[in-house]
């Protein structure tokens, strides 16, 4: 889980080109959208692409996506649950 979260943070930084952000700057539970990293709805679509390309997990409904993408923690939990299934 910890390794997955670190990997996710690196992938998020790369996918969204968060140049001045380091993995340790991202708190596991901090909200990714709005405050926190200040991401928006286009970023959320980009993160869904990340999940699909890197983890073969397809999120069809943007509303569902919002829940999964709340934080690095929620993303990691979702990935683990999918991989366990």
């Amino acid at each position: 889980m910890e390794a997955l979260k670190l990997k996710l943070k690196q992938e998020i930084i790369e996918a969204l080109n968060l140049q001045d952000t380091k993995p340790e700057d991202i708190d596991d539970n901090a909200p990714l959208f709005g405050e926190g990293l200040g991401l928006d709805s286009i970023d959320s679509l980009e993160l869904m692409v990340l999940l699909e390309r890197n983890y073969k997990i397809k999120v069809e409904d943007p509303r569902e996506g919002r829940k999964i993408l709340q934080s690095v923690q929620s993303m990691a939990e979702f990935i683990m649950s999918k991989q366990a299934a």
């Binding site: 286009i42 679509l45 692409v49 390309r53």
Partner: peptide, 13 residues
């Protein structure tokens, strides 16, 4: 490259 799946929206926008 990705055969019409999982495309980043940013270049399209």
């Amino acid at each position: 490259t990705y055969e019409e799946t999982a495309l980043n929206p940013t270049p399209f926008i």
